[in-house]
Design a protein around this nucleic acid. Structure first.
Lengths: 205, 205
DNA sequence: GTCTATAGTTAGATAGAC
DNA sequence: GTCTATCTAACTATAGAC
């Protein structure tokens, strides 16, 4: 059972991701939910609040999944890097890739951030925290730990993080517009990560 | 001497890159050129034609620079891969990075493509041709040639292309919103590419 | 909580004077 | 080729009936 408020939020999320906030009209959102535009205002004060609802939905979903997957999250305390293994970082890469491509909320809000960040300071900060600096900082810590443990060869963690994360970042943007070929993308990712691990890890695999 | 038509195109280019096509009003464009909105219509038939003018400007600039730098361009005949050397691919990476971050036309239109591609088939195709498949195809050919020449170790060209290109792609998106720190980005790029070449090339450098 | 009707505003674009 | 004045259409949002 989905409430009308939730249906509006999901409809708006899809439309904002496709066209951007300003381009989407409240009538379009209403049409998608099969109600008339003025009825929206019984659920939300105004258009901006619908957007806020999308943002809240994404934050909630992201924290939930990042927690599950022990993924980057600059707004929460650090997770146990001690448990990092080569196998685990492969899993992290695959989960990250899959989450931001197939999860409806994550995939759409990622697009929204990409679109809106050029004229919205807050959303730009959010994008950088999640997909640029935040992600790199996290990977850096993971690799620093792996190097210290002796699991990885002594290498500069920042460069290692870029080499590891950049292909994930690139492949997400490559396959976001062709979700029917996601398996192909996953395969490419896997190969890149495996080669990466063979190069820099001391153990095999 | 810049014509009013050119001044309008450049003003629109900046605004579209920041806010997206729909969000920008013709009044905003006019304000930036210090004329009144109706005067725009003496230079362009409508708003859409201003956008077309931005696109044409970018295409012209891109072909010009890609030719100069022997860079990817799926709409033109292939360049002489025979002349590819390790030193040259480092230069290609740096030039690509610098062009799409510092050239006013290229940097702004790249943002426009990123913003508009989710709801515009033509622009999505253009983005993929320039920044995704086109770029990867080009690098793939370069590396295939380098491998055949014996300059590079025998490696799967497609994976090599992703490993080479993804960091460029990522760093462009990292530094596009902080052009004051571009030198830092250039340094990171250089290090990544140098390490890349050390790993895969047979000769040094 | 849905609707119809409509207010209030702003957008893109045109007409016509200078 | 610039301007002022203005048209028309579209959008956000409100009022009030059901």
């Amino acid at each position: 059972m989905e409430s009308t408020k939730e249906r509006i939020t999901y409809a708006a999320l899809q439309l904002f991701a496709e066209k951007g906030y300003q381009t989407v009209t409240v009538k379009e959102i209403a049409d998608k939910v099969n109600i008339k535009a003025p009825s929206l205002y019984k659920h939300f004060k105004n258009k901006q609040e619908i957007f806020t609802s999308c943002k809240d939905l994404f934050y909630h979903r992201m924290h939930e999944v990042h927690d599950q997957l022990h993924m980057p999250d600059s707004t929460r305390p650090a997770f146990a890097y001690q448990s990092a293994t080569t196998q685990k970082i492969i899993e992290i890469a695959e989960n990250l890739f899959e989450f931001y491509l197939t999860d409806e909320v994550a995939a759409n809000f990622r697009k929204i951030l990409l679109i809106e960040r050029y004229h919205n300071k807050e959303l730009n900060q959010m994008y950088e925290e999640i997909f640029i600096d935040g992600a790199i900082d996290y990977e850096e810590k993971v690799f620093a730990e792996l190097v210290e443990q002796g699991a990885f060869k002594k290498t500069e963690p920042h460069l290692l993080a870029i080499k590891f994360y950049a292909p994930i970042y690139f492949l997400i943007q490559k396959y976001e517009q062709r979700t029917e070929s996601i398996e192909e993308g996953k395969e490419a990712l896997k190969q890149v990560i495996i080669e990466f691990c063979q190069l820099y890890s001391n153990k095999e695999g």
